[in-house]
């Protein structure tokens, strides 16, 4: 496993820094700003995967990495690993369109899976509603909140390619725990079946979606309806 640390054309290096699915505290931002000033970082750039890249001279990279880690942040893992997770702000407190707690789920997925080794970089995106601001159908493993604490899951998508591919829906309205179990299964099958450096989507094209599908019990929709729907039924006086 490598780290997000790359030489640029101008000889400087970038350090790819990950927060909690793009979420950082004011203290972390202030700490980064102080490090940027102290170490002469000439530019900071936000990435499509909700990370922050810092441009730095090679001789100061180690000091910058130490500063980053002292803030509770880390340099993103890179090269044939599960990459930092993208998640929208979907939650009960933030986006009014959210149908579920996408941000917390994304953070939990990132905590558990980021850095795990796989045949080719594996991207996870979590969206709080079907609008899909995080483009879940363009991810190797896309999750879309479907009401209550249930989620739809698509696999095999990717966008960064001359031949992009949309993910295929494999689970509807599964409970939160099942998302983790499905991901465990997909990763296990991916490691077992894919050729070296083969994207999951290409492996799906080559072997068929069935080769990656989890057992039926993991794909069973949640039996409990959306709590808001239950509340509405009670409000209407309708039978549950």
């Amino acid at each position: 496993m490598g780290e997000g640390y790359f030489k640029q054309r101008n000889g400087l290096y970038v350090l790819d820094v990950m927060g909690a699915c793009g979420l950082m505290t004011g203290e972390q931002f202030r700490g980064l700003a102080a490090a940027v000033a102290e170490l002469g970082v000439p530019a900071v750039k936000l990435t499509t995967r909700q990370t922050v890249v810092l441009l730095v001279p090679e001789e100061k990279a180690a000091a910058l990495k130490a500063a980053v880690e002292s803030l509770g942040l880390r340099v993103a893992p890179y090269h044939n690993v599960v990459r930092p997770v993208m998640a929208c702000p979907g939650s009960a407190d933030l986006c009014p369109r959210a149908l579920g707690n996408a941000l917390a789920l994304g953070q939990a997925l990132q905590e558990r899976y980021t850095g795990q080794e796989v045949p080719k970089d594996f991207k996870i995106s979590v969206a709080g509603c079907p609008r899909g601001c995080t483009e879940p159908y363009c991810a190797d493993f896309g999750v879309v909140a479907a009401g209550g604490e249930t989620y739809n899951v698509a696999i095999g998508g990717f966008g960064g390619s001359s031949r992009p591919r949309h993910g295929e829906l494999i689970a509807r309205r599964v409970p939160r725990d099942a998302v983790f179990a499905i991901l465990d299964h997909v990763l296990e099958r991916y490691r077992a079946l894919a050729q070296p450096r083969e994207k999951l989507g290409r492996a799906v094209e080559r072997l068929g979606l069935e080769a990656f599908l989890p057992p039926a019990q993991l794909l069973r929709p949640a039996e409990e309806p959306d709590p808001v729907l239950l509340e509405l039924k009670a409000f209407l006086g309708a039978p549950e």
Partner: peptide
């Protein structure tokens, strides 16, 4: 239904 969602500030009730 409108009376139910108005105070909640939601637009969508799945199901």
């Amino acid at each position: 239904v409108l009376a139910f969602v108005l105070p909640k500030g939601v637009l969508d009730v799945p199901g």
